[in-house]
Design a protein around this nucleic acid. Structure first.
Length: 622
RNA sequence: GCGCUCGUAGCUCAGUUGGAUAGAGCAACUGCCUUCUAAGCAGUGGGUCGUGGGUUCGAUUCCCGCCGGGCGCACCA
């Protein structure tokens, strides 16, 4: 908040010293080390460099024009031309009082709200959600929350995998299993049953003997189909035939397809409800099916897509340097085409086609009637080339599109062995099992800690805390790391009370709340009108940290990196812990007590708001 | 082969337009509970930021070469 004012005034001062300079690059940032001051700007050095000026002289000239006496002490010029600002305690108290009056919580809503579509999670129908979906889901949800908090209009859209070749196999499997609506075989765990059937058919397609044997004992659902002697090749063609029928609108296959959707929706709803994730739209790949033919036709008409080896492909138009061209690759020293397929040689479409149709739908305002300012895709790193190709093809197709297209990618989740996370038996880890285990481990920990403190708490209460702590731990472990690095999954680390973890932050929150409970002083703080007295270094450091909440939220929004917010909240909690050690709250009196209660209140509010922006709950007691 | 990406303390990771003496947690060691939750705090030790060049007043950050890991590269999504 204060840094914005400093920044504006500094920009004015620079503009008057260097008319015509682009002052947007003149930024004010928190100091890396408190000994230099509270905020700094190193932009003058860059400006001086561009103009071959003496940076210190420029700094002296700018400071002479700078009027910030109401906010900070004398501006210092250090080193090669750093400007260091030290905020006056009175200015800090002023901002804190604004927050106590409910005018703000150390951030401002944006002056330029953007319409932003965020595409994330994207699980597959008829399959269990697994650990591979967690990063996209959690990251996307958090980004949506942060952007909304800053006043942007966000549409979340879950682009589920409800279409494609696997449905041919699923429908074939459904038929030979003679499933019907509310089939008992599907009741206890329908997703697991569908997964079994899918595996059986897909492995039979690959010629696996065991699966072939199983399959040969199933029901031949139509004349001319003799399962007892069926060969892998026929399984493949049968599955393909079922897919073609589905795509042609066959009513029985559509019926089965709808049934698969319904079964999956139950699972998705269950998982998202546990995670506290909400979507404005769930428009699966199938939704875009009616447009695919037209997409390819248009691309061909405009010469963007051409036939190659029986397929329809988009390849390079030579508009960018070869090295940067997503449609080129080098083989044996020569640049060769590396096209994106939009139609297979058998006439089927693939995911580039669907993504282009989806992009067009979103760009044309299918969700709310207007062109969005930004469309964000949250997927894993492996899809980088795909999205570069899709974005490039789209820009050629609709050059007039202004929406910013962003691929927010993230690394893999690895097990403790450094290999992609798997269960002991080598299976992918199911998301629901992961959440169960998090809650179970958190429950054991809560129970143990409560026991150590010789306190009592009902099981229901402990379960409730464990749910909040366990899910928070999983989410926070993911969000607190730079999304682009692969991340090593460790129960021990994420549930640890030490370090940058959810339980540490949640615990810090309960310590604040406990003061208010003990002191019975809830509410009414904002109305006292008393001036705040910030004297102890721990009080001042905590207050200054509160001031920077907004800077961090904006950084998260600009770079799509929730880990900045995690680092900030960890720092804040550390400042609070130090304050808590050395500044008794309830035992202090007068202005000290008022000020300290105010710091506690604001700290709690920022932690709660910050965790909420990460999709993490807090609890009053731990 | 080409492309993307990573390489920072023993381990797991941060590192905000290039900026000041590269940070945190774990692990090791030392203190602090008649005091608002010690699930905490304070402190000590630990680094050729893979490597070699270049640009710069200044490089973990930008550029180039090399070494090592991960991933991707035509009909799966």
């Amino acid at each position: 908040m204060l840094h914005k004012m400093l920044e504006e005034r500094l920009q004015q001062a620079v503009a008057s010293v260097l008319p015509g300079a682009d002052v947007r690059s003149v930024l004010v940032r928190p100091c890396p080390d408190a000994k230099f001051g509270d905020y700094q700007s190193n932009a003058l050095m860059a400006l001086a460099k561009e103009r071959k000026m003496n940076p210190r002289q420029l700094a002296i000239d700018v400071v002479a024009k700078l009027e910030v006496g109401d906010i900070c002490e004398k501006t210092e010029i250090a080193g090669a031309g750093f400007l260091n600002f030290r905020i006056k305690p009175s200015a800090i108290a002023g901002v804190l009082q604004g927050a106590l009056r409910g005018e703000h919580l150390f951030f401002q809503k944006t002056d330029h709200p953007r319409d932003i579509i965020i595409d994330f999670s994207s699980p597959n129908v008829a399959k269990p959600m697994h650990v591979g979906h967690i990063r996209s889901t959690i990251l996307g949800d958090s980004l949506a929350r942060v952007l909304r908090l800053l006043g942007h209009r966000v549409i979340t859209d879950n682009h589920i995998g409800d279409w494609g070749t696997q449905f041919g196999m699923l429908i074939f499997g459904w038929k030979i299993e003679r499933f019907f609506v509310n089939d008992p075989a599907l009741l206890p765990d329908p997703i697991a049953e569908l997964e079994r059937v899918y595996k059986m058919v897909s492995q039979a397609c690959d010629g696996k003997e065991e699966s072939m044997t199983q399959l040969r004992q199933k029901f031949s659902y139509e004349p001319g189909l003799d399962l007892s002697s069926i060969q892998p090749e026929e399984v493949r063609s049968r599955a393909r035939a079922e897919l073609v029928k589905l795509q042609a609108g066959d009513s029985q296959n559509l019926d089965i397809w709808n049934r698969l959707q319904a079964i999956s929706k139950t699972q998705f709803d269950r998982v998202y409800s546990r995670l506290g994730v909400r979507f404005d739209y769930v428009l699966g790949e199938g939704f875009y099916n009616p447009w695919l033919k037209e997409v390819v036709a248009e691309l061909r008409d405009r010469g963007i897509a051409v036939e190659s080896e029986g397929a329809i492909v988009v390849s390079s138009d030579g508009s960018v340097p070869q090295q940067q061209d997503p449609f080129l690759t080098q083989k044996e020293g020569k640049w060769v085409s590396n096209p994106a397929l939009v139609q297979k040689s058998d006439g089927g479409f693939n995911y580039a086609t669907t993504d282009l149709a989806t992009l067009q739908f979103r760009w044309r305002g299918g969700h709310w009637g207007g062109e969005p300012d930004e469309i964000v895709y949250v997927t894993d790193a492996r899809q980088q080339l795909h999205f570069r190709q899709v974005f490039a093809a789209f820009c050629r197709w609709h050059p007039e599109a202004k929406a910013r297209l962003a691929h927010v990618w993230f690394g893999s989740i690895l097990g403790e062995d450094g290999r992609p996370l798997k269960t002991r038996s080598g299976e992918t880890v199911k998301l629901e099992d992961l959440l169960d285990e998090a809650e179970e481990r958190a429950f054991e920990m809560v129970t143990r800690k409560i026991g150590e403190k010789e306190q009592t708490m009902s099981e229901e209460q402990r379960r409730d805390i464990a749910r909040i702590v366990g899910l928070g731990a999983i989410k926070y472990a993911d969000l607190s790391q730079n999304r682009q690095t692969d991340y090593l999954f460790s129960w021990e680390k994420m549930l640890s009370m030490q370090g940058n973890t959810a339980p540490y932050l949640q615990y810090a929150y309960t310590r604040v709340r406990s003061i208010f409970r003990k002191g019975n002083v809830e509410g009414g703080l904002g109305q006292t009108g008393d001036s705040l007295s910030l004297e102890a270094s721990e009080e001042i450091a905590l207050a200054k940290q509160l001031l920077n909440f907004g800077i961090v939220l904006e950084a998260v929004a600009d770079d799509y990196r929730p880990n900045f917010l995690c680092a900030y909240l960890y720092d804040l909690s550390g400042h609070f812990a130090r304050f808590y050690e050395s500044c008794p709250v309830l035992k202090s009196e007068g202005a000290h007590r008022v000020s300290r209660l105010a710091l506690c209140d604001l700290t709690a509010r920022v932690i709660k708001q910050g965790l909420d922006a990460l999709g993490i709950d807090t609890t009053e007691q731990m």
